[in-house]
């Protein structure tokens, strides 16, 4: 009787666990393991050829024109990460600190800052592509209306401003996320701690650097790590705003676009190359995993339990 009930219970647990587990194994674990394996084979179209050791890796890292494209795209990802670190996470922290004062209207500001976050990247990309249009875009029209006509330029059409413009669109889209994560962190700081600080100092700067910043460390860990993963996976926004080639002249090319072009081919006739594509995917994957892992561990150490 007892054993029968126990096996029944085991069956019941298995019935609950197995279906979701199968989904994750089949559509996450298996593809990721396969991506590693695929990188070691030669591919012609969709057909897998011989085992070629590290040839694909060697190709994307050291053989021209792949090597310089890899370096070019990677350097842009690094730039995007640091630019967004300042203009998305940095601004997010400032906005959160301001919202935290709960001045009249802060509820409205809170809803407004998060509104773009719920929009699709595709809509945001198209919206800013139209806005940045050199002749008809509202950005240049607005600058002219403000008497700043000398600042008008083909934002997405020249090497010097294209990547910055996409970074701006990204920050506009996502700044609400770090803002509200930081705000939630600040709201968890106990009132007694804040009262004690108020007794000690009147300086906002001391309050921020010595109390608020250390105490929102868990929020910082999360938004920094997510931004890092996001910046090195960047694809949709540049794809919509400047196209698969990272135009003009590759000045907005990033690893996501480069990987997609390599794997699936492009309009200018380059054939799909699953071998080189997989090698790139593996390299990006390892880079993200190692850096994000280290970043998380190092930042966790800074966190203080209250």
């Amino acid at each position: 009787m007892f054993t029968k009930q126990l096996t029944g219970r085991r069956l019941w647990i298995a019935a609950l666990i197995m279906p979701p587990l199968v989904f994750v194994c089949l559509f996450i674990v298996y593809p990721i393991i396969s991506a590693f394996a695929y990188a070691f084979f030669e591919w012609s179209g969709l057909a897998r050829g011989d085992f070629v050791w590290f040839e694909n890796f060697h190709k994307v890292l050291f053989v021209e024109p792949f090597a310089s494209r890899t370096v070019n795209a990677f350097s842009h990802n690094v730039f995007v990460f640091f630019a967004l670190m300042v203009f998305q996470n940095g601004l997010g922290f400032v906005l959160a600190y301001f919202l935290w004062r709960e001045l009249p209207g802060f509820r409205f500001h809170r809803i407004a800052v998060f509104l773009p976050v719920v929009l699709s990247t595709i809509v945001v990309g198209f919206l800013w592509r139209l806005f940045f249009h050199p002749l008809f875009g509202p950005v240049n029209a607005g600058l002219k209306a403000l008497g700043l006509g000398f600042l008008t330029q083909p934002w997405l059409g020249q090497d010097t401003t294209a990547l910055w413009s996409i970074v701006f669109a990204n920050a506009w889209h996502m700044v609400g996320f770090p803002t509200l994560v930081f705000l939630a962190g600040m709201q968890r700081i106990p009132g007694e701690v804040l009262d004690a600080v108020r007794m000690e100092t009147q300086s906002e700067w001391v309050k921020i650097t010595k109390i608020v910043w250390p105490l929102v460390a868990p929020s910082a860990t999360v938004v920094f790590t997510l931004l890092f993963v996001g910046a090195f996976n960047w694809f949709e926004l540049p794809y919509i705003m400047v196209g698969l080639e990272g135009s003009p002249h590759g000045s907005t090319d990033v690893l996501g676009l480069y990987f997609y072009r390599t794997a699936f081919g492009n309009q200018s006739g380059a054939p799909p190359d699953f071998g080189a594509g997989s090698a790139l995917a593996v390299l990006i994957f390892l880079f993200i995993a190692i850096v994000a892992g280290t970043l998380t561990i190092r930042m966790r150490r800074r966190e203080i339990e209250l």
Binding site: P31, S34, G277, A281, F285
Partner: peptide, 12 residues
Amino acid sequence: PLKLAIIPLFIL
């Protein structure tokens, strides 16, 4: 980031 496993997913 499952995007990076898009080639095996495509074949699957």
